[in-house]
């Protein structure tokens, strides 16, 4: 059996406990990595802009991402969203 990451879904449960609802939201995720949490967010969100400085991880995310995910290889400091604003900004293990 392959490596199982958080098979108990404790992270998702914690997000529900803090009332971090993503339903219908425009979400910016900072530090998306290969998209482990992005996929969870994208199930409910209207759209997810997912950024990470690791280009290889972002490429991996792009290969399996749903259509509402825009994955970009950026450091947060250099990310320019233009006029876009978000209902939720998520620091995914990246602060």
């Amino acid at each position: 059996m392959p490596v199982r990451i958080d098979p108990e879904h404790n992270e998702q449960f914690a997000l529900s406990l803090i009332d971090a609802g993503f339903a219908g939201a425009r979400v910016l995720e900072i530090g998306c990595g290969d998209g482990r949490l992005t996929r969870v967010i994208a199930k409910d969100a209207r759209s997810v802009v997912a950024i990470d400085s690791d280009a290889a991880a972002v490429a991996e995310l792009r290969r399996g991402a749903s259509r509402n995910v825009e994955a970009l290889a950026y450091e947060f400091e250099s990310f320019e969203p233009g006029p876009r604003r978000f209902e939720v900004v998520v620091f995914s293990w990246s602060l």
Partner: peptide, 24 residues
């Protein structure tokens, strides 16, 4: 990190929020 949080706040729509997940 404080700068990143402040910048994130500036990218929020009215009524928006920040979620931070990090190891203890």
């Amino acid at each position: 990190m404080v700068h990143a949080l402040r910048r994130a706040r500036g990218l929020l729509d009215a009524g928006g929020f920040i979620v931070d997940v990090h190891p203890t």
